[in-house]
Amino acid sequence: MERSPPYKTTNLTREQIKALASNFPLDILAEVLAEKLGASPSPTPQTNRQWYNTDPAYERLGLNSPEQLRRLKRRGLFRPGVDYRIVGSEFQFHITNCLARLAELPEKRRIFKNQPRSRRGKPSTT
């Protein structure tokens, strides 16, 4: 007995296809697209990297823009040295720690305001 495919073979609109595709992990979509285009998918290296600059970090945290991530940091949601750090002139965010902070209930979050300059990446002189 022949099995039917697990999906309907109907004509889908572009919007419906995009909506379906948004539900799948990006690595799977990349693999399927590479197969369709005839390219060999490059293996994605598994890395233990946790600290990312603002632009790649906001996407990994599921935020809408880099400015939204900056606003959350300015409002004191993230802890200096734990959730973010300053490297050179760039802020870097620890993805796992930031995701944990974003998942906390708002009433249980401790807000970190008015961090002294020495606490924001520069060694204390006292």
Rank of each mutant, 00 (worst) to 15 (best):
M1Q: 07
R3G: 14
P6A: 09
P6W: 02
Y7H: 15
K8N: 15
T9M: 15
T10C: 04
N11S: 14
T13C: 03
T13R: 10
R14L: 14
E15N: 04
I17E: 01
K18N: 06
A21V: 07
S22E: 05
N23K: 15
F24Y: 15
P25Y: 13
L29T: 06
E31D: 02
E31G: 07
V32R: 00
V32Y: 05
L33M: 11
L33E: 05
A34F: 14
E35H: 06
L37K: 11
L37I: 06
A39Y: 15
S40C: 03
S42N: 02
S42V: 14
S42A: 06
S42M: 08
T44L: 04
P45S: 11
P45D: 14
Q46F: 05
T47R: 03
N48T: 15
W51F: 02
D55C: 07
D55V: 13
D55Y: 04
R60K: 15
R60C: 04
G62Y: 11
L63E: 09
S65I: 03
S65T: 15
S65A: 11
P66F: 10
E67A: 04
Q68I: 03
R71V: 13
R74A: 09
G76H: 05
D83I: 00
R85L: 09
I86S: 03
I86E: 04
V87F: 02
V87K: 08
G88M: 01
Q92G: 02
F93A: 08
H94R: 01
T96W: 07
T96I: 06
C98N: 12
C98W: 13
C98L: 11
L99A: 02
L102G: 10
A103M: 01
L105P: 09
P106L: 01
E107N: 14
R109C: 04
R109A: 03
K113Q: 04
R117D: 08
S118C: 03
R119Q: 15
R119H: 14
R119F: 05
R120T: 09
G121S: 03
G121Y: 01
S124P: 02
S124L: 04
T125A: 12
T126I: 12
T126P: 07
T126G: 14
